[in-house]
Design a protein around this nucleic acid. Structure first.
Lengths: 122, 122
DNA sequence: TTGCTATTGCAAACGCAGTCGCATTATGCT
DNA sequence: AGCATAATGCGACTGCGTTTGCAATAGCAA
């Protein structure tokens, strides 16, 4: 039987508060504000559980590695701010289907943007 | 002084013949058809040289890891065929700038497509 | 409250991409 | 042809993200 633990609750709370995709290090840092003893292995174990439960999704970022985000958020892409290093979820799709190649059957796509976020621009 | 070696020539020939981005394992496999003794460390060393010389460029693919391609090919994106596992270069850009987010300053972008390539569809 | 056991924290171990040390090979200048 | 040394092949090694074994801790049903 699966038990409720303060560690897993803290990890979920971190995602609810952040409202953006997170890397392991982000989760660990923010989670430790809630549960100071929080351990890396525990985070990995719970991320796995939450992904299996469908509560989180894993995304492979080309330069940032594995990132985690809440599932069920609809089609979107990702923006990485080079200044504050945060990852944002950009709702909607910036793919131009007309510019898609002739003869290739596109089954999936990922778009990764980077630059400066509104908070850092201002 | 830098010397010409059959190994480096073979690696360059592999790229000229392939006409598409390659992973380390591809380069090693195709290169060994030309120079059977070709070693992984040698390939890494020469890839580094060729990148520094501006003859090759490194791209980080979210799921395939590091891929190498000839430089100076203009703006383009990448397609990965799930069937034959090859990577293709798609000339042009499929990013819709109109759909780009409000308030974010986009400095760079990468688009990765996957599906079935023309050779595998037919 | 007790007892069972899922979960934790910790450290050791893992797999993998990429690098390095070194003896050997081979390029190219003289 | 001879020589200096750049480059290779090999295996050992690194670094990093992730996983695992295990003793200690803590949920939760009875």
């Amino acid at each position: 039987m699966q038990r409720r633990t303060v560690q897993r609750e803290a990890i979920q709370e971190v995602f609810r508060n952040a409202g953006r995709p997170l890397r392991l290090e982000d989760i660990l840092e923010l989670g430790r504000l809630l549960v100071p003893s929080l351990n890396q292995a525990t985070v990995y174990r719970n991320l796995k559980l939450l992904v299996e439960a469908g509560w989180l999704e894993q995304v492979q970022h080309p330069t940032l590695g594995t990132i985690y985000e809440r599932s069920g958020r609809g089609h979107h892409h990702h923006f990485h701010c080079n200044s504050c290093d945060r990852i944002y979820e950009l709702p909607g799709c910036a793919l131009n289907p007309a510019a898609t190649p002739e003869g290739f059957v596109v089954e999936a796509h990922e778009i990764f943007l980077s630059g400066t976020c509104p908070a850092c621009v201002r």
